[in-house]
Design a protein around this nucleic acid. Structure first.
Length: 292
DNA sequence: ATGACCGCTGGAAGCGGA
């Protein structure tokens, strides 16, 4: 078993590269074999999970620990639920809900520090049907996220905003289809909110590495969406400026969607270097690597 | 091309998801 540590130090090596993934697991206990197989194959350093669909006490901590990951999670019976897994590290939780919603008890936001990087794991509301109260909740949640993201950005810390945004950002992020036109995932007001978030200074890691093409991370169970490759890009990894300069690679593990008993989402991931940026310039180490 | 699928709860059928 690897050593577990909150901060790199003696017995806990500084990593030269960090791979951060987000995966809407659609029922963590139903999907546990798929999750463990993906962790073993993909070996993300950090994995943000959404849609645990499990009460807090039903999180499979032992199996995940056996796979080499420590975790923090926010469970909820039946619906929602988010988790942050870190390979050989103890994530240090900093927030268990999104500010600004004192009566919002849906488990959709979790924040933790891992190796000096602040990881925000989010599950933005679906919002269907629209218009309606669920769509209003989605928009209000988005505004709370935008406010909080601005505060995170202003800290100057390395920050990752990863999760299922339930937003198809542009028409390039969906297969040619007219059937989604009224869906909450594509509404102009939702896309405008996503654009406003990006405009704070966040970098869309997947789109930066793959500037063209649909880059889907979700294929509907209905009408056999995966075999038709009728997919939507819903899962996004946004990087603060410091991390964006270190971005080396990103992608979607789409083969995971083709497994037996698969989630309707595939994992999306981004790698950031601790050595050099994409332009080859040397970089300072992550902030807390000099501590201890 | 959205009704069709899937998971959860509870122990049937309804809700929520996207």
């Amino acid at each position: 078993m690897r050593p577990v540590c909150a901060n790199p130090g003696p017995g806990c090596r500084v990593r030269t590269s960090v791979k951060i993934a987000t995966f809407n697991i659609n029922g963590i206990n139903r999907r546990l074999p798929n999750l463990l197989a993906w962790l073993q194959a993909a070996k993300p350093d950090v994995a943000c999970l959404q849609e645990l669909k499990a009460a807090h006490a039903d999180f499979p901590r032992d199996a995940i620990r056996e796979a080499g990951y420590e975790a923090v999670w926010q469970g909820e019976r039946s619906w929602n639920g988010v988790a942050i897994l870190a390979r050989g590290r103890e994530p240090v939780p900093t927030r268990r809900s999104l500010p600004g919603g004192p009566h919002d008890d849906q488990a959709r936001y979790l924040e933790a520090a891992v190796d000096g990087v602040l990881i925000a794991c989010l599950y933005l509301p679906n919002g269907n049907p629209q218009p309606g109260p669920k769509f209003d909740y989605k928009l209000a949640w988005f505004e709370r996220l935008i406010i909080h993201a601005a505060e995170l950005h202003a800290t100057g810390l390395p920050v990752v905003l990863a999760g299922d945004y339930n937003v198809v950002p542009t028409d390039a992020d969906i297969y040619p289809s007219k059937s989604w036109g009224r869906n909450a995932l594509l509404q102009p007001v939702v896309r405008e909110a996503f654009a406003r978030l990006l405009a704070q200074g966040w970098t869309d890691a997947l789109r930066t590495i793959h500037p063209a093409g649909p880059l889907p991370s979700f294929w509907d169970y209905m009408r056999d969406g995966f075999s038709r490759d009728a997919g939507l890009r819903l899962d996004h990894i946004l990087l603060s400026p410091d991390l964006a300069g270190r971005l080396t690679d990103a992608g979607v593990d789409r083969s995971v969607r083709g497994e037996q008993n698969a989630s309707d989402h595939a994992p999306a991931w981004a790698s950031v270097s601790n050595k050099r940026a994409r332009n080859g310039r040397p970089l300072a180490p992550f902030p807390d690597h000099d501590q201890h």
